[in-house]
């Protein structure tokens, strides 16, 4: 059966990230675009305009615009986040939504518009690694709360990558607990 329709793929998470709005500077003239999901533009040379990431990357690859890096795609900002992420072992630091996907897409298609692109790549990779290590470690303490685990600030991409393993593990924990409980009850019933 088509199991893939019941799961999110990394590409689908990236697809959702592509609707995030960023700023570009076009080099062409065009009227407002009436999209189904809203209007974009008008476009005038050198006038910054807000568009979804997918449009920004399309225009960029056709050399129709330059992309303005989002405020957070910055060495100082991300280095501070990296330090913060290292400081706390028991929780995730709040990051801009879809930061992994957006930075990957922008660094891929517009590395000439983004300052310190290679340094940024390194910092983001470090942040992702630390967060992933925390998530993996988190599984070993999952049993502490028997009913719900708080996972604040975990991004959709991260949730998606740990999902199969975590859901399976939690369901197994639950099965064990139920078996244990049933055994206890039965043991008590024996006179």
């Amino acid at each position: 059966m088509a199991k893939r329709f019941l799961e999110f793929t990394a590409a689908e998470v990236e697809f959702l990230a592509e609707d995030t709005i960023i700023t570009i500077v076009p080099n062409f003239q065009m009227d407002m675009l009436f999209f189904i999901s809203g209007t974009v533009g008008p476009f005038s040379p050198s006038l910054p305009v807000q568009v979804p990431v997918w449009l920004a990357c399309t225009l960029k690859t056709r050399k129709r615009c330059s992309i303005q890096a989002p405020e957070w795609l910055d060495v100082a900002y991300l280095s501070a986040k990296l330090d913060e992420e290292r400081m706390f072992h028991d929780r995730f630091i709040e990051m801009p939504e879809h930061f992994m996907e957006i930075s990957a897409m922008l660094l891929e298609c517009a590395s000439d518009d983004i300052r310190n692109a290679s340094q940024l790549r390194g910092i983001i990779e470090d942040i992702c690694e630390i967060r992933y290590a925390k998530a993996r470690h988190g599984l070993s303490i999952l049993q502490d709360n028997p009913v719900a685990t708080q996972v604040n600030n975990l991004s959709l991409m991260e949730i998606n990558s740990i999902r199969p393993f975590f859901i399976h593990a939690m369901n197994e924990f639950r099965n064990f607990a139920q078996t244990l409980q049933a055994t206890r009850i039965r043991a008590n019933e024996v006179p």
Partner: peptide, 12 residues
């Protein structure tokens, strides 16, 4: 939320 390991509920 009902607990699985012992009878009873935890609230979240």
């Amino acid at each position: 939320i009902e607990r699985a390991d012992v009878s009873g509920v935890n609230s979240v």
